[in-house]
Structure formats: C-alpha cells, structure tokens
C-alpha cells in the first residue's frame, strides 16, 4: 500500500524515531534526553498520520508531548541534583544487561519473522473520531470505565502525596 512518496516519508520518520531514541539513552545531559524524547514521540505521531489514524496522532502529541514529557522536563528543572548534571551512561551490570538485551532482540526478531501479518483489504476509515467514540461507549465501555477509575485513583493519590507536608 505504501508507494513512492509515502514510502520515502516512512523511512524518514523511522530514521527520526530510531535516531532520537538512541539519543535519548545516550545523551549525557538528561535535559537533552528529554528533548530527544519529544522528537521521538513526534515521529511516532507522523507514523500514525501515515496510517491515516489522525485522531491517534493528535492524542499522541497532546498526551505524550503536551503532558508526559513536559512533566518530566519540570521534574528535571526542579530537581537541583539533576539540573545540568552529567549522568553516567553505563553501570556495573554490563554482562547481565548484554545477555538480557540480546535475548530480547532474538525473541523480537523471531516473533517478527514468524508471524503472518493479517492485511485488511478495506479502505481506511475517514471518520475515525466518531467510530472510536461509538466503540468506546458500546463494545469497550467496561475497559474505558476501568481506565477512568485508575486515572481517578492516581489523581487522588497524587493529591494525598502532595498534601503530606
């Protein structure tokens, strides 16, 4: 389905995502890591748009960039010890880490190459927002409500922790 331009755009986005992902874990300055994380999330939003899932893309930017990363940047800026600190990039557990990571890599490659991917022949939905809304209110109403309860309890927990002074 991807042809010409969309293929080129896909590879550019993939390069952005992987490149910035590598930078997130390898930058010495934690503030720079957070900024590369923003770029990485932006690239993922681009992939969603390429798959004509605009609603998910907008929500991705709104939540991951607008809320989560900014919260992280706030934490970095308000923590005196982290502020402009040079973080050590490796720890003592090099050998176990290497084993676990290579095992994960092997499993992932195995899973990716052995799975037969189902392809839909239907044209992508144009009115995604309405469809998602209907599904959330009918088929998936229970998980949806559970997620709201989880969020509510997280909210109350945050207030309780913040008031303990």
């Amino acid at each position: 389905m991807l042809t010409g331009v969309s293929e080129a755009v896909y590879y550019i986005l993939a390069a952005i995502i992987i490149g910035s992902g590598v930078m997130v874990v390898s930058m010495k300055n934690i503030f720079h890591s957070a900024l590369f994380l923003v770029l990485c999330f932006f690239g993922v939003a681009g992939i969603y748009i390429l798959l004509s899932a605009e609603f998910i893309a907008a929500v991705q930017v709104l939540i991951y960039v607008g809320a989560i990363t900014i919260l992280m940047i706030f934490a970095i800026m308000l923590t005196a010890r982290l502020y402009s600190a040079q973080i050590k990039q490796s720890n003592e557990q090099v050998v176990p880490g290497l084993i676990i990571v290579s095992a994960l890599l092997v499993i992932t490659i195995f899973a990716l190459s052995k799975t037969t991917w189902k392809l839909s022949s239907q044209a992508p939905e144009t009115q995604t927002v309405a469809e998602i809304g209907k599904l959330l209110m009918t088929t998936y109403v229970l998980p949806f409500e559970i997620v709201s309860v989880v969020l509510l309890s997280a909210l109350i927990g945050a207030i309780v922790i913040a008031r303990r002074d």
């Binding site: 605009e54 609603f55 907008a58 929500v59 930017v61 709104l62 960039v65 607008g66 144009t126 009115q127 995604t128 927002v129």
Partner: peptide, 11 residues
C-alpha cells in the same frame, strides 16, 4: 482535517 480543532490544541 477532520480532527481540526484537536490538531490545533495538540500542536
């Protein structure tokens, strides 16, 4: 875009 105003809020 059919997500018009949401796009503006996100960007």
């Amino acid at each position: 875009l059919n997500i018009g105003i949401l796009y503006i809020l996100a960007i």
